[in-house]
Nucleic acid binder design. Structure first.
Lengths: 203, 203
DNA sequence: ATTATTTCGTACCTATCGGTATTTTATTGT
DNA sequence: ACAATAAAATACCGATAGGTACGAAATAAT
């Protein structure tokens, strides 16, 4: 299976780290981080529990690893959409598209794993908490940069950037919630449009 | 203690139903419904576990009873604010006041119990789920009535009432989340103002 | 006084949680 | 061939979850 890396002396490792992370992410994402046990994950991933502990140190380490991986697979695509320099309303449409296009990729509805982890943060370990805070702060920065850029181009109303960034964070969270609740595409789209209409100058 | 009701034959009941509900609500509200065990509640309320089961039937019954009580103590005051007939912007200010004034009433920060229960709905029992759905649907109706009234008075933009009601629900949820996160009053107020600015016509 | 009735709470049940001690197994270095 | 090493998995740990069996205790009716 996993015959990568330099091989030392002992028994070759069969545990596939990425496979375990993917399995754990799937379950954390769909069922909520607090509702999935180590036992469940080790069973679903086809790995023994001591194997998990050897690889990740414990539940905290696994959840941190999952979150780091989610940064690449779930958050980076969003950041890329935000970083493209284009009219604000085009960006909003691109965001709506991104959200809606993510839907058919998964069999079971899911929201934002970072948001889900954040909302049960006090049940998670120290390392995971640190990672949550870092990723959240990074995403706030991304939103702030996007807002700031649109403001300097005079495309949106003059709302304090800090406030606007937090608002964007909340509205993204809402939209992801609607996705998880299986609300129809049209409803999600209309809700996002309504949310972001606070930025567009009154006609 | 509890010498109310008609007394029959057996040992008089000492368990105070309302006290147990209040204790359970406090803990569900502060720590999250899924993070509080029956053991914990029976300990904190000074009641034996079989006593709890005799009174409420089980965890599901207790959580349902707590939610019914929350309708009176937490939701009704909000509905009353919404039902008063006044200019939309005055209502928004009254809502902000209601939210902020609720803060110093509690030692530990808390959001909306209905929202918290709804966000972990799949971990709760059948009766509780039914109650959650009923209360949520009721609150949506309240928001819709408020929006509809403002629309007929030409105070707000022409946004589909269903969508607007869902939006209001989400924004209230956001505001409660900020309260729970201990964000400063000014931030909560600005966020609510920003959220509700989607309704106000061109400035 | 005795009996019927109701509530009381201790002590227990099974399942599952996160986590680990320990032995086996598979490989490399000598 | 054999020692050294590293990862494998079984089988366990104490704690806690939701839930209950059951006898003691307290009252009202007889």
């Amino acid at each position: 299976m996993n015959d990568s890396e330099k091989r030392g002396r002992g028994r070759p490792k069969s545990l596939n780290r990425e496979h375990v992370i993917a399995t754990a992410m799937e379950h954390y994402w769909v069922d909520g981080p607090a509702n999935v046990s180590i036992n469940e994950i080790s069973k679903r991933a086809g790995v023994s529990k001591p194997g998990l502990y050897r690889e990740f140190g414990g539940e905290d380490g696994l959840q941190k690893a999952v979150l780091e991986s989610y940064l690449d697979s779930g958050l980076k695509p969003l950041y890329e959409v935000l970083e493209i320099d284009r009219p604000f309303k085009d960006a909003v449409q691109a965001l709506i598209n991104l959200f809606l296009e993510s839907r058919p990729l998964f069999a079971s509805p899911r929201g934002c794993l970072l948001r889900d982890m954040r909302s049960c943060q006090d049940q998670l370990g120290a390392d995971t908490n640190e990672t949550i805070d870092r990723l959240h702060s990074e995403s706030i920065d991304q939103y702030a940069a996007w807002i700031e850029r649109a403001k300097t181009k005079n495309e949106i109303n003059d709302i304090p950037t800090d406030l606007a960034a937090e608002y964007v964070d909340l509205q993204f969270g809402n939209a992801m919630l609607l996705l998880k609740r299986n609300e129809p595409d049209e409803m999600v789209e209309q809700m996002m449009r309504l949310s972001f209409s606070v930025f567009t100058p009154k006609q």
